[in-house]
């Protein structure tokens, strides 16, 4: 299989545009999610002066282009150019800073940007991140979200009715998991195979009597899909924290090994060494967290009761293998469509 050119990748990767007033946190959001900047380090980020395009090439399901645009309004040309940029975008994220005083300016910019994006491309998904929500309590978060949504709906109803249904609202902060949760849902909207992935997870959960299962993109820690049992944010948090532990420990204890295995270093395909990465956690509340790499940069993380785990590891591994095989087929098809290099 020939390597795709950058050009062909660029064409196939869906684009996500991030807009909002200056200082609302646009660059911070994408740096924390995709570039592993620590949240407290974002204070050093300079104001964005021109459109920045970030290529994200993680697992097969997280192949994106993130467009970070300046919050400051640009020249006439730059603004005209924005229309054509929006035409090519699959999703628009508008970041609104809850701690900022100028709510009116933010709202009018929000409304303008949304209408503009919708006029350029009526298939675009629109996401409003009500950001820096770490300043709010849980209750304030809910209140803020419903109030903002109501105001925007009211204003948009006058100019364009249909766009309202395309907008989702989420409260976010880079200091907790909410920004990862919100970005996961944005990315999921762009995955056409989502339904298939969810049914496969449902099957796995039923067969192995699991409480919950997530499929994660390892590098970004976004979740690609989950089964249809009720979703609790804490489950997501715990699973994504486990991924972090897995990555960090793996990072510490792989260098030395790289030296040892230098002989067979030629093919860096992990599967050829026969053991994909796994992690098992026993919690004192009789729950087990079980993590397994099921494809390149894709991790399955499950929550199970101890009585369903102990003694059933063989069965679980067998079903996970079946899941991984199904996943491989989906990925292969996706890779062909997106013109990505094949994994095998």
């Amino acid at each position: 299989v020939g390597r795709p050119t950058t050009e062909s990748l660029t064409k196939s990767r869906p684009q996500i545009l991030i807009a909002g007033l200056p200082g609302s946190g646009k660059s911070s959001v994408q740096s924390v999610v995709f570039h592993k900047i620590s949240p407290h380090e974002t204070v050093f980020l300079a104001a964005t002066e021109s459109v920045h395009k970030h290529e994200v090439g993680n697992s097969a399901f997280v192949q994106l282009q993130i467009l970070d645009i300046p919050g400051k309004l640009g020249s006439v040309e730059a603004e005209e150019n924005l229309d054509s940029v929006m035409k090519g975008c699959s999703a628009l994220i508008f970041v609104i800073d809850v701690t900022s005083e100028n709510t009116d300016e933010a709202l009018s910019r929000l409304k303008d940007t949304i209408l503009r994006a919708y006029n350029a491309n009526s298939n675009i998904f629109i996401e409003v991140f009500i950001h820096k929500a770490d300043a709010l309590t849980e209750e304030q978060r809910r209140y803020c979200q419903s109030e903002l949504q109501e105001r925007v709906d009211d204003e948009l109803r006058e100019s364009n009715d249909k766009v309202i249904n395309r907008i989702s609202y989420r409260t976010t902060s880079i200091f907790d998991h909410s920004v990862f949760e919100a970005f996961s849902l944005v990315v999921q909207r762009l995955i056409s195979e989502l339904g298939a992935l969810e049914s496969m997870l449902d099957l796995l959960v039923n067969r192995c009597i699991m409480e919950k299962a997530f499929l994660f993109d390892e590098v970004s820690k976004l979740y690609i899909a989950t089964d249809s049992t009720p979703y609790h944010p804490q489950d997501f948090e715990l699973c994504s924290d486990l991924i972090e532990v897995n990555i960090d420990l793996g990072g510490i204890y792989s260098e030395k090994i790289a030296k040892k295995g230098a002989a067979d270093k030629d093919d860096d395909d992990k599967s050829s060494k026969g053991r994909s990465s796994t992690a098992t956690i026993h919690l004192s509340n009789n729950m087990i967290l079980y993590l397994r790499e099921v494809s390149q940069y894709l991790l399955l993380v499950c929550i199970m009761r101890r009585q369903n785990f102990d003694g059933n590891v063989g069965l679980i591994e067998y079903n996970v293998k079946i899941f991984a095989e199904g996943l491989r087929e989906i990925i292969e098809r996706r890779r062909q469509e997106l013109n990505l290099p094949s994994e095998s």
Partner: peptide
């Protein structure tokens, strides 16, 4: 906690 990868 038990973490296993290809090498350790």
């Amino acid at each position: 906690l038990q973490v296993q990868n290809a090498n350790s």
